[in-house]
Design a protein around this nucleic acid. Structure first.
Lengths: 112, 112
DNA sequence: TGCCATAGTTCCAAAACGAAACTCTATTTG
DNA sequence: CAAATAGAGTTTCGTTTTGGAACTATGGCA
């Protein structure tokens, strides 16, 4: 089965995951909630490669989760900002954050 | 950057995603919350392939999210059941479900 | 003129994935 | 007893996706 088929799945969890359930998308959204909006910021923050970021941003804009607004016209440069629809993913990010804080502690480098 | 490096990331969202942020893991957990516990059930429900499922189950057991308990010894067969740690992912699934219900409606086949 | 910044795009090798067949243990059916 | 069925994986192989790095494009600035 192709992953993209999930967008028509009977299960709303599966449908949501068809958009945000890949390895990087949620991290982009996290950065948006942290106030970032530009290509180079996402690159610096997340560690993902440039063409994956470009692809994910395109998908998120098409899905109406982010909006691409020009912040300068010469040359054309864009901010990627959360739409209302995107803002409403906040609870999901928060539950993932809480779970991570509780159940995935960062190992200390050493006990010495 | 390797995806698995995220397990040591400063950000708890990233750490959580290093475990459940791939294309299928959350779907397995959804099935667990729906009461499923066996290999063939996950296969039938999710549409993922067998060796991917085997790999994900192994990871989830290693991470302490699922527990593998034998339900028969001849031959050895196992149930995969949520641990306490796994149960606590419920809020994440619920927020994803709610968002999907609201923002990713299923297209009707046709308007006729 | 040459260099820097921002935002992508292109190329290639490596890793992950999908589909299907195969393995193994044991049980049921003829 | 031989053959078929069931559950749970494992293996193989060809296709996608990804990581890493280099390249392109536009315009500001020294």
């Amino acid at each position: 089965m192709k992953w993209s088929d999930l967008s028509e799945n009977w299960c709303p969890v599966a449908r949501t995951l068809s958009l945000v359930g890949d390895r990087w998308t949620m991290l982009i959204l996290r950065d948006c909630f942290l106030g970032m909006s530009r290509f180079e910021q996402f690159i610096a923050s997340s560690g993902m490669t440039r063409h994956i970021l470009a692809d994910r941003l395109k998908r998120l804009v098409e899905a109406g989760v982010l909006e691409r607004k020009a912040y300068t016209n010469t040359p054309k440069r864009y901010d990627y900002v959360l739409t209302e629809k995107g803002q409403e993913l906040a609870p999901a990010l928060l539950t993932l954050r809480d779970w991570g804080k509780k159940h995935m502690p960062v190992r200390r480098a050493t006990s010495a």
